[in-house]
Structure formats: C-alpha cells, structure tokens
Design a protein around this nucleic acid. Structure first.
Lengths: 341, 341
DNA sequence: TTGCAAAATGTGTTCGTACACATTAGATTT
DNA sequence: AAATCTAATGTGTACGAACACATTTTGCAA
C-alpha cells in the first residue's frame, strides 16, 4: 500500500532505523490511515522467543500466607505456558533480611526479562530497584508498596481504608462504647510501618463515628515468646474490652485460640486473610470477620501484568488496589468455591 | 517421527478418517510418547476463521442491572477481538415475555457459533435449549439457572446462601429480636421462584440462629403502582420492624427512598447490587449492606467460557457460582476502583 | 492382467509477523 | 570512471497448525 516492501514496513514498525525519511513518511501515513494494529497472535508465533520472569517471594513453606502467593504464581504460569513464558521462583527466608538481598542478587544475575517481587524488607530491597531500572528490566511490586520507586505496576490494597473497614465491621456488631484493642503481631519493625496505616484507618473511623470508644494498641513481636501469652492475657482480663482488631493474617488465628480458652463472650474479633486456620475459627465463630488481602490474586495479577507487558506490549496499571473483601461465616464457602480465589 | 506425512497426522489429530489402522497406531504412539499438545496460538492463526457469539439479554436501557451485564459483554468482546471472536447482541424487552421468544428465534436463525443467554423467562426460554442442543450450538446461561437443560456452563450465585448472607448481615447489627420484612419487588411471577430461594435462605438462617425474630414477606409487583407506596407505608408503620431485606437489585433503591421520608431510625436495610442509585443510598447510610450479584462479571465470564471453548477448545466449568460479595460504606470505593468490577 | 474407483497418503499454501540475508541505489574514494 | 562502502530496500523462510488439493496405493471387477 505504501509502495515499499514488507522489510521496510518491518523496520518502521520496530524502529530499527535504516529507513529513508521518504519511506518512513509513506509507511506511517498508511499505518495511520488503516489504523494498523499488529496481530498479537501472529507476533508471538513469529518471534519464537521465550520470556523468563523471576518471582522473588518469601519462602511459602514458612507461612501459609505466602503459600497462597505461590499458588497464584503457579496459576499464572500455567496460563502463560502457551506463550513461552516461564517463571523462575527465587525464594528468600521470611525471617532473614539478608536473605532477600542474596536471593534478589541471584535473580538479577540470571538476567530475567521481568521481575515480580514482594519487597517486604524496605531497606534491603530498595537498592535493587535502581539496578532493575538501569538494566531496563520491568519489575512489579506486590503486597508491599515502596513509593520511591516507579515499578511497572504495584498490586496491593489500600491499607488505610482496610483499617476503616475493620473498624466498620467491629462497630457494626458492637454499638455500645467500650475498649477496643489493635493487635500488631509481627517479628519485624520495618513491616509495622504498613500495619500502622491500618491502625490509622481503624482509629480515624472511630474518631469520626463514635469517639467514645477507647482504643489501645498492642505490639506482639513473636507468638513463640512467653511474654506473648502473658501480655495477651492482661488485655483480655479487662472486662471493658469489646473487640480486637488483628492487623496481620498469621496473627488472628493465634489470638483466636486464646479467645477460646478465655471464652469469648461477645468479643468481636476481626482479622485478615483466608488461611486455613483462620477459616476454621471463622466457621466456629471465634473469628467474626476476615478481610481478604487475596495474596493469591495479587501474585497472579503481578505475573499477568508482566507477561502481558512482555508478550503483548500491553500497558499495565501503575497501581492496582484490590477490593477489600469481607469474609463472613455465611459467604465464606462461596469464596472458596469460586475459581479466582 | 511416525514415518507419515503431516497430512496424515492432521487427519489423526482431527479424526477426519481416511487413515489406515497401521498409520493411526503409529501416529498415536508418537503423539502419546511426546505428549503432544497443540500450539493454540498457531492453531488460531492457521484456521483463519471468525467465531460469532450471540448474546441474548434484556434491554440494558430498561434497567441499570442489565446495563452492567452489557458492559461485561463489551469488555469480553474487546479482549477477544484479537482472536476473531465477534459478539452479536440480541436484546429483548424486559417486560415482555413474547419478546424473548422472538429475539431468541432471530438469534438462532443467524446460526451463531455460540450463545450466551440470560433466560429470565423460564417457560419462554425452555424450548430453545433443545433447539440449541440439537443444532450442536454451545450455550451458556447466566443470571438465572434452568436445571433441566445442560448448558456448557451456568454462571450465577447460590441464591439460598445469598439469602443467608443477607440474614447474617441483618442479624449482625440487630441482635434484639423484632420483626423483619422480606420484600420481593418484581413484575413477574416466574422470576419470583428464584427470589423465593433467597427468602428460604434468609428464613432458615434466623430459624437456626434466632427464631424469636418474626419474619414477614411482602410481594410488590410494580413500583409505579399506587398500591406500592401504600403497602410499604403500612409495613413501615409497625414500630416493631427492625429490618428489611430486599431480594432484588432495582428495588432496594426504591425502598431506600421511602425510608428517608419515614426517617429510618435504626432500621437495617439489606439489598442487592452496585447500581448507581443503590450506591448513593449506601453512602448516605439509608442502605446498610449490598450483596453484589456482579452482573458485569457474570456476563464477562459467560463470553469468556464460550470463547475459550470455541477458540481454544478449553472445557468450561459446568457451573460457576460467584462469591457473595458484601459491599459496605467503607469497602465500596475499593470495589469501584478495582478493575474487574 | 488391466482398468478404475475408493481409500490412503502426501504436498503445498496460508494465516501475520519476525528476522536473517540478499540486493540495489547513492555517496565517496581513488 | 571504476571501485568501494554504506545506507536503503527487498526477498525468503520460519513459526505451528489448518485445509484444499494432488498423488499414490489398494481392492476388486472385468
């Protein structure tokens, strides 16, 4: 149509140079006129290359939460296998910050075409993003946002709003004022920055809706620690305590088991995530609500955005904040049955 | 590898016959040995055919609920355009059962490769499924299930469980016993069979958890009818009334507007679906909860299953029951911001 | 044995793109 | 003006399957 050969058109399309201004004009004119859209199918057939995506995540065996992320990655991998996308997992120790550095370094040296990473250790992860950027390797963050860097995409949730939802759920079933506890159960101080966002949302909700509630905060570092149980018992001893909001996923089940011993007598317990242990407590009634952070879907989407970017040159959303799903006893099963969760 | 030509292999793969037993054995042996998986990409390129899917739905302009379904179809259409899948909408009158028959007939005569249908009029829709089946046209049902037929897939929700969730939400915020009303707002009696499933779930929940609640049912046929407001006012006049469960999507907004006039004073209102009108009432507090039936996603998945079946020969789930999403004031925005909803 | 149709098998092109390589035109050097 | 180099352009094949069509084999009747 432009009076040039396919080779010249190819050079124009891929900006490979070696094209005269004259030809370039002609080709672009036609391209514009016919609103040329490349056939993505034919493209992947033609360029017979395979893409390698490195997935840097905490060891799934150390925490069921991360096992779900792993599952999401597996699912995405299966769907993209047809397009010659392969995923190389790089697993670091959830309790060892140095491990993140080592593993990320190894992943980087393997020179992948894209990187998915859960940068749960802020300081250790930070220097790598410069590295990725200068090497022009697209990377996607999930679970934990790091605002200073500009990834292809971040996938997570609005933590502040998540805290508000937690507060709303609590407020719903306990309208008479009293004392509420926010529990951060976490080994790591860095991480708690994120948990504080949830707490802020939780507190602001009550400040707006019902300031008469007294809200206390409790940091529990390690559930194995003997002081853990002791501190917890102190709190629970207070008869004015009406509810507990646990800001982490792993923790809620631990807290729940204590509640059973104590006999939970109208205490409202709100936690995070559909982990097996949590679900059992939700079924038995010792947990009242779970907010679903959907780690599986987060990781699944992360791989998808990368693969879509690499294979189909699609532009990924710079941030994708997942819905704050409320899981109750009655809708729990519907979430489990549904395919995407 | 089998010592035969590509043509013979092709005949074996597609069971086109005209292959000697000897060759068939040899080819199948190799196919098995190398665990042959067809390259789906190359397949769609090679067979340069286009697939036409007929989407038979109520007129989106008559109801925002169906407008969302329409949107889901549009979204799926955009994603499948690359694979030469085109969708032909066939719209029938939501208030005219005969219209469904006419439109379905037209759709069928167009001889599509697949059919997506929302069979909201049971009797009128039923005869068509035989037709589709004998013509070997795969069809997918959404929104309304018809158990007698065996579609490629049904996409909807567990209505009984949905009613239980509604009851749970109501019970959560109103623990002192009282009177509760189940409102079916619907022009059509056929349809109400489905609404009764929700009611059953609602009632059974209370029968189990708190039988002291008195539950009444109210059928309102047409919101334009003068008797509608009158009947509603009668109910609302009862001081013992603690909550209202509206089983349809359209209705909740109407009920909500009455509540405002009456001053809702602690009455709990639970309805369905994220329609603009409903969302406004949820924000203002006159609706307390919405259960999301996700019409957009239902239709979207319907097209996806059909297209995946046609293009990639993937097997669709025979039924896909979507999660019973609970929408509140605080998590509402997160649902709106999230891409898939 | 020949003839011939039917069955079995093989060949070649196409889909839309990517890419390696071949060829031509223009400019520069000698 | 020929030789040389380089920028510009053109050609051909591959990707993995689908499918139309050509060719060969086989079985059977004359």
């Amino acid at each position: 149509m432009a009076g040039v050969s396919a080779g010249t058109v190819d050079r124009v399309l891929h900006k490979r140079g070696r094209v005269s201004d004259d030809a370039l004009q002609k080709v672009n004119k036609i391209l514009d006129e016919i609103d040329y859209k490349p056939n993505l199918i034919a493209r992947t057939l033609g360029s017979n290359r395979t893409y390698r995506i490195a997935a840097i995540i905490p060891n799934p065996e150390q925490d069921p939460y991360w096992a779900q992320s792993r599952a999401g990655i597996r699912q995405a991998e299966a769907e993209w296998a047809h397009y010659n996308v392969i995923i190389e997992p790089y697993v670091f120790d959830l309790y060892n910050k140095e491990s993140l550095k080592e593993v990320a370094d190894t992943a980087f040296r393997a020179n992948p075409d894209g990187i998915l990473i859960a940068p749960i250790f802020y300081h250790e992860a930070l220097p790598f993003f410069e590295l990725f950027a200068t090497s022009l390797i697209p990377f996607v963050l999930f679970n934990t946002n790091i605002h200073e860097v500009k990834p292809l995409s971040f996938i997570g949730q609005n933590l502040y709003q998540s805290g508000r939802v937690g507060a709303e759920l609590m407020h719903m079933s306990k309208q008479e004022a009293g004392k509420l506890a926010v529990l951060h159960i976490n080994e790591d101080l860095d991480n708690s920055v994120h948990l504080l966002e949830k707490e802020r949302g939780f507190r602001e909700f009550f400040a707006e809706k019902n300031p008469s509630f007294e809200i206390i905060t409790l940091n529990l570092e390690n559930s194995e620690d003997p002081s853990f149980e002791q501190k917890l018992m102190e709190i629970l001893a207070d008869p004015k305590l009406k509810g507990i909001f646990v800001s982490t996923s792993k923790a809620s089940s631990i807290a729940a088991s204590f509640l059973i011993k104590k006999n939970k007598q109208g205490l409202v317990l709100v936690g995070y995530d559909m982990l097996e242990e949590n679900l059992n407590h939700l079924r038995s009634g010792s947990i009242d609500f779970l907010i679903n952070q959907n780690p599986k879907r987060q990781a699944f989407l992360g791989i998808n955005y990368l693969a879509d970017h690499l294979v189909f040159r699609k532009t990924a959303p710079s941030t994708d904040l997942l819905p704050l799903e409320v899981i109750t006893r009655e809708n729990l099963q519907s979430y489990l049955d549904s395919g995407i969760h």
